[in-house]
């Protein structure tokens, strides 16, 4: 079936199976920045934004996003670089597999909640697993990014 949606503000039209998930659709169209860590709605690596909200793309049927706006990390390159700066400052970056999901979640957090509390930040990022870092460094990096004007 043909599904039309906005990929980083560009209207695209992909021919997909009715049971195809968004992570699969995007990767098969060359958007390899979408990382699939568990493919079962848990680890958060595949997180991207649909209508500005972070969702796990391994669990979104592509058919369900007709006419919606999808943001991958390609759509927030400058913000991703700023987030990367703070991750590096805190020593929070390692293998990078979860980082793209973090970039999108953290960007969305900054857009959604002004001056979030630590509890709100943790609540917002807890659905993104990371096995490399000590997690605290990530949290500190994210806090520094959120403070940026």
């Amino acid at each position: 079936m043909l599904v039309k949606f906005y990929l980083n503000d560009t209207l695209v039209s992909y021919d997909v199976r009715p049971d195809e998930y968004l992570s699969e659709t995007l990767r098969s169209h060359g958007i390899k920045s979408v990382k699939v860590g568990c493919n079962e709605s848990t680890c958060g690596s595949c997180t991207l934004l649909v209508e500005g909200k972070p969702v796990m793309s391994c669990s979104v049927l592509t058919a369900s996003i007709e006419n919606k706006h999808v943001t991958t990390v390609e759509g927030i390159q400058e913000e991703a670089a700023k987030i990367a700066y703070h991750f590096a400052e805190e020593g929070a970056d390692q293998c990078g597999f979860c980082n793209v999901g973090y970039a999108l979640v953290v960007y969305s957090l900054k857009k959604t909640i002004k001056n979030p509390t630590d509890e709100q930040i943790v609540d917002y990022i807890v659905g993104n697993l990371c096995r490399c870092s000590g997690l605290q460094s990530q949290l500190n990096a994210i806090k520094a990014y959120l403070k940026e004007e």
């Binding site: 920045s33 990390v73 390159q77 990367a84 590096a88 400052e89 970056d93 990078g96």
Partner: peptide, 21 residues
């Protein structure tokens, strides 16, 4: 001395290529 990872920004930007990519 404090030195940023040489691949950190690219990885955050989704430009890192892993095996299946």
């Amino acid at each position: 001395n404090k030195t940023h990872s040489i691949d950190g920004t690219a990885l955050m930007q989704g430009k890192g290529k892993y095996t299946d990519d």
